[in-house]
């Protein structure tokens, strides 16, 4: 049984359609990455699953129960984006408070809170008031409160937001560890590199609709393109290669050779050998998740000006200064 399943899920905020027929399925024990620009509807999807926001239409199930079922939330951990922990708590007292809401015993609360705070590196500061924490520390606390009660599924909305590179690595390792223990993890992020590194499956949400969904390998499949560089002083036989039926794009000192459907790179390599040219660089080009994402989402984020992925030039006067 899938941990998360939605079918034709819709959500309207007044006249604004935040989700337009979203259907996703997340299997147990996987890390699922949901990519999308700010305002694409990622958080809305998670909030519907948790009962924070009501759906307008469609189906949404979490752990086999209709989304929003109170009792099911015992088995769920959640780190919202832009979370705001009560400043009057310390990390330890906050986890104790949440532990009571989850119905954990005193011993369980104490043991798991200490362990979780140790894992996220907050043990030394766990008795300090949260209002004294940095953004990164609050983010670590957010992750700790999402998993300390041993949930079956964890929803993380921008989990590495405000965390330094070392911390990000630690979080990635932690998520892998949780996954290895059977936990299902649903990550919302616009940090493509992060998602690419940890996710088993990825979906791209654009303006309330899933535009691509699959494994990372699926999405970053080979593009049948090779990048070639010859030894210094040697000219690349562009026209000869084109004559063989391979389109070539030059960006000195490299040349990209596209391999048409049904062909291989071998005829080009034979040509170079015949011409006694010395090969210095030959790499099969792959798409990154970022390439795929930018390709799919070629527009400004909702509510901002459309720029087709380009930065507007700085004002001339400023540059002159």
């Amino acid at each position: 049984m899938p941990v998360v399943s939605t079918s034709n899920l819709c959500k309207n905020y007044g006249r604004i359609a935040a989700l337009r027929g979203v259907s996703v399925t997340v299997e147990a024990g996987t890390i699922y990455g949901l990519l999308g620009q700010n305002g694409a509807g990622k958080s809305t999807l998670v909030k519907i699953l948790l009962g924070i926001v009501k759906k307008s239409n469609g189906e949404a199930n979490l752990l086999g129960a209709p989304a929003g079922t109170t009792a099911i939330r015992n088995r769920v951990g959640y780190l919202p984006e832009d979370h705001l922990f009560p400043g009057y708590h310390s990390a330890r007292s906050l986890l104790d408070f949440y532990g009571r809401l989850y119905g954990l015993s005193r011993a369980e609360r104490r043991g798991r809170a200490d362990e979780a705070l140790d894992v996220v590196g907050l043990r030394k500061r766990m008795d300090s008031k949260i209002r004294t924490y940095s953004k990164g520390m609050k983010q670590r606390l957010g992750i700790a409160q999402a998993f300390f009660h041993n949930p079956d599924v964890i929803f993380l909305d921008e989990p590495t937001d405000g965390v330094d590179p070392v911390g990000r690595k630690e979080i990635r390792d932690l998520l892998q560890r949780l996954k290895s223990e059977g936990c299902t993890i649903f990550v919302n992020s616009h940090l493509l590199g992060e998602v690419e590194l940890i996710s088993d499956r990825v979906a791209i949400l654009n303006q309330g609709q899933i535009v691509r969904e699959g494994t990372v390998a699926d999405l970053t499949r080979q593009t049948n393109r090779y990048t070639i560089r010859l030894a210094d002083g040697q000219a690349f036989p562009t026209e000869d290669v084109r004559a063989l039926g391979f389109p070539v794009t030059a960006h000195n000192p490299f040349h990209d050779v596209e391999i048409p459907e049904g062909k291989t790179i071998d005829p080009v390599l034979h040509l170079l050998q015949r011409e006694r040219l010395s090969l210095r660089h030959l790499v099969e080009t792959k798409q990154t998740l970022e390439d795929v994402f930018v390709q799919m989402v070629e527009s400004g984020e909702p509510g901002t000006d459309r720029r087709q992925g380009k930065t507007a030039p700085l004002p001339t006067a400023k540059r002159a200064e």
């Binding site: 939330r73 979370h83 922990f85």
Partner: peptide
């Protein structure tokens, strides 16, 4: 108001309490 504040409400509503 502190309970229903943005950022605070989501955290508490996600817990198993109606």
């Amino acid at each position: 108001p502190n309970l229903v504040r943005k950022g605070s409400l989501d955290l508490i509503i996600a817990k198993p309490i109606g």
